[in-house]
Write a protein that binds this DNA or RNA. Sequence first.
DNA 1: ATATTATATAACTAACCAGTTACTTATATG
DNA 2: CATATAAGTAACTGGTTAGTTATATAATAT
Lengths: 207, 207
Amino acid sequence: MRKKRIKDSKKSREDILRAAEEEFSDKGLYGTRVDEIAKKANINKRMIYEYFGSKENLYKAVLVEVYSRLSQIEIESLKNEGSCTQKIRNIIEVYFKFIRDNPSFVNMVLWENLNKARYFNELDIKAIKDPTITLLRRIIEEGKQNGSFRVDIDTDQIIFSILTFTFSYYSNRYTMSALMRKKLDDDKNIQSRIGYVTDMFLKYMSV
Amino acid sequence: MRKKRIKDSKKSREDILRAAEEEFSDKGLYGTRVDEIAKKANINKRMIYEYFGSKENLYKAVLVEVYSRLSQIEIESLKNEGSCTQKIRNIIEVYFKFIRDNPSFVNMVLWENLNKARYFNELDIKAIKDPTITLLRRIIEEGKQNGSFRVDIDTDQIIFSILTFTFSYYSNRYTMSALMRKKLDDDKNIQSRIGYVTDMFLKYMSV
DNA sequence: ATATTATATAACTAACCAGTTACTTATATG
DNA sequence: CATATAAGTAACTGGTTAGTTATATAATAT
């Protein structure tokens, strides 16, 4: 027997959003059942439609939620002091760890890619992410000017590579773990991967 | 009005599999409708159950199909002659182009990762992929011995990186195209990416 | 205290969907 | 030619699901 809820629209909204994040990141827009979200949030299904209007809108709300969470951390870490080399080292580590600790972010990005980034574009998520890319670009350009980095490297390619390397370690961990016969989410493996990736980038970029 | 089929079990089976590949790679196991596959294959739904038993089994058949297709190309390309450096250069290009030309492969891998590689492991797909990884490992080890590559690089990390770089360019192309404000499936961008990736790896690996 | 309204619930509906049944038709072989 | 059987079809079933309706109750303002 489910206990009755005390009336608290803010908490209800949060409960729904949290349950929806778990379900959508796990099963996607199609695979998720609205009834299941209601059950998990311990709330009547009707309330989901009260607060979010439709299953699709709820999905979009989850997408915005997970992306905002990343953006905050990114901006935080990019403000750190130190040499350009140190900043690159730092951002790779911060990314890796954020992604390790936020599997629902990874999954939502995968769902979006399978969906041809439909909601991603509808919501203009790139606006949320833009400050990070701009900052990364600035660090690399600064490194080129002060002689830390080679001037002939392609800034965009490097940014793209950093994002790819960190994200994909997790996004493909299930098939890759099987192929490489290694548990990729093992902490020891993560740490050595971070070291290797950082090393490779800096060797490539440095003068 | 749909035209009647001539009796031809082999063709029917192929029609079903081809339609299923399109649907499953696009919409996943849950999102795909068996009726839709039947319609696309221009065949009665009953026949899908005749030949494949269940929706799930049909999905598995598609997974085996797309992986076998890659394996053939991989093994072919790895047999090529040339220096170790040339072989690495060659495999990166072959991978990139296979993946560009086989979007359903990319999608099936994404679906599997979202599904925690469930069918991938059930079917023991790693057995299909193993020869490739073994061959790649052999090339890198050979390069270390004959003095082309540094002996202190980690072979597994390099293999992992090569697979990641090629695959992820496509798997994340929709969100990344938005973020980088660039059409990643544009041929010019693909070509310059291949050049950059190859360059970076070889610079890192070479003595 | 009472009226108002935001928040909550149970039960319903119309559409959908995987898998099945009961049946028909085309083709190959003796 | 006859007939066995492989290949095909239409229509159904039982269960599920997104979204709705009608109604109840707790909090708040007056």
